[in-house]
Nucleic acid binder design. Structure first.
Lengths: 223, 223
DNA sequence: AAATTAAACGGACCTCGGTCCGGATCGTAA
DNA sequence: TTACGATCCGGACCGAGGTCCGTTTAATTT
């Protein structure tokens, strides 16, 4: 089987924005960088907007990224921002897209132990370490880009990660409810939690990694 | 040890609103129903506001609970609402307070297996079932009351639940990182996740309960 | 009872996310 | 090259959360 069924669960269809549309719902890994078929001006503005947003975030942090400010910085109307990215979350998500794709490529086709080739439990360990590190790296953006509660688990990127974990779990502990166990593991990497533990509680990342390792071990232990 | 150290971890102090102030940070279980020392008019308005909010929520769902609407329905100025509850989340949280206290009382001092007297693992099982059921019951409100990412894990109610799980875990698996494991278990009961699984994926609650049971078993198994 | 003061009140005001629609622009077909 | 339709643009507009501050009112002191 391939990754075609990650998205198969029936869900209330989201309104078709330009971003996150995802077409026939395979991976979002098709085009490496360019979007489907944007009109020239649209594409130009999109680039300008992403650029402006990145600049703003670098200067004033994630909170400084006002939709109006982004529009102004990109010398573009406010409506254009929303037309292109749907909402604030969409814009911020788009900013994360690059690293997202890189990460997906790494665990889908990269070298072991993250990529295929290593035994599933090994891959799980590597996956947690890698994703945890990435989350910490771009924590502010991740926090700011958090979708509203009722979309949070339906976002394509999230489903891909979840699906991947579930797949590995199925190989390691077929008798378990891997679908749900995957959610359990994902929760460990939740940006809000990481923020709380690392920033607010000053917990070293190593402890989170250790806990991931331990949890994977406990969960994949067949009884 | 008692529950006095659940709140002991150093955290950036939240601005002192009337609600969630929590004073010297024991449990929020002190006064059963009345607030510290509100002026007569303030107390009256508080009651009117909560009443109005509950009415609005019953009529128009959680989305219909506009701060302005609540103020109007309570025949009170908008500023009063914010003075009393800090922000929207505060108001919604206050609405949940009653069942929260009931639940706390149940696992802190109620009959086993939820309350003290049963072996820790038993109590964990009961805890999950009970909290899961409560979450499903008031799901809409729970979703609407979700705090912003950087407060989510610092909210008193949440810390109490987390602390309780951690305590039980410490009794069952002293060698584990119970602090973090408690977060893992809590994640299972996250309203957003429950919403996703039960509402959007139509998953029966029994499956969530089964998964909780299974997870507790896996996690508390000493190696 | 009058004075005093800390607390509460209320609503004008601000910001920001999100919508809308008349007008400008791009790609295409003739 | 021109004409046409689909797409896009832009900024006025709206609603809701949150702030501010002059005014009112409840408790306390004299």
């Amino acid at each position: 089987m391939l990754y075609a069924d990650f998205m198969s669960t029936a869900l209330p269809p989201l309104p078709p924005h330009d971003e996150r549309a995802a077409g026939p719902d395979l991976l979002q890994l098709g085009a490496t960088e360019d979007e489907p078929c944007l009109r020239a001006d649209a594409a130009r503005n999109r680039a300008k907007l992403l650029d402006a947003a990145a600049r703003l975030i670098a200067e004033h942090g994630a909170d400084g990224v006002t939709m109006e400010a982004v529009a102004a910085a990109a010398q573009v109307g406010k409506g254009t921002v929303f037309r292109r990215f749907g909402d604030r979350t969409g814009l911020l998500t788009a900013l994360l897209d690059h690293s997202e794709r890189k990460f997906q490529a790494a665990f889908l086709g990269g070298p072991p132990p993250l990529g295929p080739g290593a035994p599933p439990v090994e891959r799980l360990h590597a996956f947690g370490r890698a994703l945890l590190r990435r989350t910490v790296e771009e924590l502010d953006l991740q926090l700011a880009a958090e979708p509203s509660p009722d979309r949070r688990f339906s976002v394509p990127a999230r489903r891909v990660l979840h699906g991947h974990i579930a797949l590995l779990l199925r190989q390691a502990v077929p008798e378990a409810d891997c679908e749900l166990l995957a959610h359990t593991l994902m929760a460990q990497l939740n940006p809000a939690l990481v923020h709380h533990l690392v920033r607010q509680c000053q917990m070293p990342v190593e402890r989170l990694e250790a806990n991931w390792t331990d949890l994977v071990a406990r969960v994949t232990k067949t009884r």
